[in-house]
Design a protein around this nucleic acid. Structure first.
Lengths: 154, 154
DNA sequence: CAAAACCCTAGCGGAAAACCGGGGTATACT
DNA sequence: AGTATACCCCGGTTTTCCGCTAGGGTTTTG
């Protein structure tokens, strides 16, 4: 209830995580996976997913292979990519340098700063959690729940 | 940088906290404070602030006194109102019952659920921090920094 | 050289956030 | 009683942002 249910993961971030999960599953094969395949598997609008993957590429999360038979691969092992890495990469783009706010704003009162300080502290706590989860653990969790669901079914 | 600077407190929440800080400072006097005074002090559009205070009133954070010489007061002591109380009150309004998403949505895959689970866990960590800070501590922090700034100035 | 894939940039549409305004109602003071 | 003050309710407007679409490139395979 309340905050817990209203503060939702952005659609963008969810798409990205689901896509990365697909890449992570096939990491061993080192065969690139194409946008179309991912978008079909996870029900993500393909042209939009394309943009997200571009961001992740620039952020060093995935790498791409151009041309026919190309596609995307994880830039490193699934257990070396934390959820924080991913979300930070996504949300940290197209902010920088547009503010006037953010920090260097002159007419920010002491009250503004204090409130912000605590807000940052709360965010840090959340980041700490996200840094502890990797893509690999995402896969593991899913597989564990698959087993569980299967048991209930029988 | 990154997430840390982009995940910003909503304007709404910041306004509310600043307004409550003003009320908290004058809590002892038990004289109501008017919207105009608060909005002037903290540079908040007064008609907008009015709406926010109405939400906070319905949420039991502040109480109001109508008529001439009226205004707003905290509903309880500043050290008994946590930042979580405030944000939860503000963000938790006008959501409920409009979703289709949220949880009971049938076509949510296992992947969706797993990702959400972890996200919720991260949020919980942030809430824990916010629950530990009260309006009183907001005041104390500000005053501490005032002293500090003064020392540097000399 | 053609097909398959990624690459870049621009812009649209709807929803939510921020804000404004008008007319009502309770209370204090004279 | 009457008037001024300040909250109260609710609808509308503006602006911003997110999710998504679109078009035209460039690189690579075969």
């Amino acid at each position: 209830m309340g905050l817990a249910s209203t503060v939702e993961l952005s659609c963008k971030s969810e798409y990205a995580l689901l896509a990365l999960l697909e890449l992570a599953v096939r990491y061993q094969s080192s065969e690139p996976l194409q946008i179309r395949q991912i978008s079909a598997q996870q029900n993500i609008p393909d042209r939009y997913l394309e943009q997200l993957l571009a961001i992740l590429r620039r952020g060093g999360i995935v790498k791409s292979q151009r041309g026919a038979k190309g596609g995307y691969l994880l830039a490193r092992e699934p257990w070396k990519i934390s959820l924080f890495d991913v979300l930070n990469c996504l949300e940290g783009v197209e902010s920088r340098e547009g503010e006037g706010d953010g920090e260097g704003n002159p007419n920010r009162t002491l009250e503004n700063k204090v409130v912000d300080e605590i807000w940052q502290e709360a965010c840090q706590a959340a980041y700490a959690v996200l840094q502890n989860y990797t893509l690999q653990e995402l896969i593991d969790r899913r597989d564990a729940r698959r087993q569980l669901d299967l048991m209930y079914y029988i």
